[in-house]
């Protein structure tokens, strides 16, 4: 993967995983979504999720997940969006954001939006991790004192 691809893939991750309401408010602040063309209307379908034998071995098909995908174009740039579950609006917005991020005059703003979404995601997982961390077992060992008995 080139650095450009890594960057786009990371931004797409933020658009796909990020909170839809937050994305809406960010795009509103930017002045809304420009006129886009729908290449592929939001469509709900399946992705077969794969695991690995033993965790790191050969792949196997675990089961499917429900996703909604959407593809749009904006000034020749093609944007893809995916959302877990049945979420046409979310998939459309993610696709729009991906297309916008490829337009030169919008890329900077979309990078910032991706970063906001990313931080929001981090905050959420951090909260989960924080709650979980309190259930960590703190072992202590009892001294039985046999050594001193004699």
């Amino acid at each position: 993967m080139t650095t450009e691809e890594i960057k786009r893939s990371q931004m797409m991750r933020a658009f796909n995983l990020g909170d839809t309401n937050l994305l809406i408010s960010c795009l509103d602040d930017l002045g809304g979504i420009p006129d886009l063309e729908l290449l592929r209307e939001p469509e709900t379908g399946l992705i077969m999720v794969r695991g690995r034998l033993g965790g790191t071995g050969a792949p196997f098909n675990l089961g499917e997940m429900l996703v909604t995908r959407c593809t749009v174009t904006l000034e020749g740039h093609i944007g893809h969006g995916f959302k877990l579950g049945d979420d046409p609006q979310g998939a459309f917005l993610a696709a729009a954001a991906d297309a916008m991020s490829q337009c030169e005059f919008l890329s900077q703003s979309l990078e910032e939006i991706a970063s906001i979404l990313e931080n929001d995601l981090k905050q959420r997982t951090k909260l989960e991790a924080l709650e979980t961390s309190q259930t960590k077992v703190d072992f202590f060992t009892l001294v039985r004192g046999e050594d001193n008995a004699s």
Binding site: M1, E5, I6, R8, S9, M12, R13, N16, L17, I47, V49, M65, V67, H80, F82, K83, L84
Partner: peptide, 8 residues
């Protein structure tokens, strides 16, 4: 390239 599409 692969893209993250969900968290399960």
């Amino acid at each position: 390239f692969p893209v993250t599409i969900g968290r399960i």
